[in-house]
């Protein structure tokens, strides 16, 4: 058994090890972190296209290695399963981003426009192209079917007002990765007062997304 394992296994591992900045395990951990954050945060987070690209590369490496393994090897199917799992996480991550882009497209594009020179972009170039096309397509459609047949003063719709914004006040579960001190929690109702909390490393909380949004993007907390 160990022979069979080392046969296919060493191939895959050697190729994986060529990545000098990040080991594959770290890369997958990064992907999973980005995936969970994106899945649970109400708004669109910064794009991680370099992670996506690396993972795609790894997947095709592993795939190519598996082609060379002979049929009926027990190790091959385990690796095949692993590829499937990684591909699921990757697809799911990209899907949830695309879903949010479609849902909040005017706001996403507006943020992209108002972003200062040198600030990192929320959208990857592909996502930006998609969002622009989606906006234009939907606008053309609404115009063609209804708006152009309306009275002259009602032929435009302010998309920014018409499409709901992401609800930043929704609550999220989170786990703290780096200890944080003096996090200001704003009051929820009028008879409450604001207060500060310390977030201990490894502890888990249920908080409003708005409060910890900067910590999510800095990677100090992980949404769960």
């Amino acid at each position: 058994m160990s022979d069979a394992l080392s046969d296919a296994g060493s191939d895959v591992n050697q190729d994986d090890a060529q990545e000098d900045v990040m080991t594959p395990a770290e890369l997958i951990a990064k992907l999973e972190e980005a995936w969970l954050n994106e899945k649970f945060s109400p708004e669109l987070l910064e794009n991680k296209s370099e992670v996506v690209e690396c993972v795609m590369e790894q997947l095709s490496h592993m795939d190519a290695n598996l082609q060379r393994v002979k049929k009926g090897d027990a190790k091959a199917s385990i690796h095949r399963m692993e590829i499937d799992r990684i591909r699921f996480v990757l697809s799911s991550y990209l899907r949830s981003r695309l879903r949010k882009i479609e849902k909040f497209f005017p706001h996403v594009l507006e943020r992209e426009k108002s972003r200062g020179e040198g600030d990192p972009s929320l959208l990857s170039p592909e996502e930006f192209a998609f969002a622009k096309e989606y906006y234009a397509n939907t606008e053309t459609y609404l115009k063609a079917v209804a708006l152009k047949r309306m009275p002259p003063n009602l032929q435009t719709v302010d998309m920014l007002k018409a499409v709901p914004e992401p609800c930043l006040d929704s609550f999220v579960f989170l786990r703290v990765k780096d200890r944080q001190e003096n996090i200001l929690v704003e009051p929820e109702t009028d008879d409450q007062r604001e207060y500060v909390v310390d977030l201990e490393e490894g502890s888990q909380h249920l908080m409003r997304y708005r409060t910890i949004a900067p910590l999510v993007s800095s990677g100090a907390v992980q949404l769960i």
Partner: peptide
């Protein structure tokens, strides 16, 4: 739009994200 988005993923290799909708349980 969706097709060209998926084609351009990962530096031009492409990935069909309409697949793998559920976490895989078995091969």
């Amino acid at each position: 739009s969706l097709a060209s988005f998926m084609r351009s993923l990962g530096g031009g290799e492409g990935l069909d994200i309409t697949q793998d909708m559920k976490p895989p349980k078995s091969l």
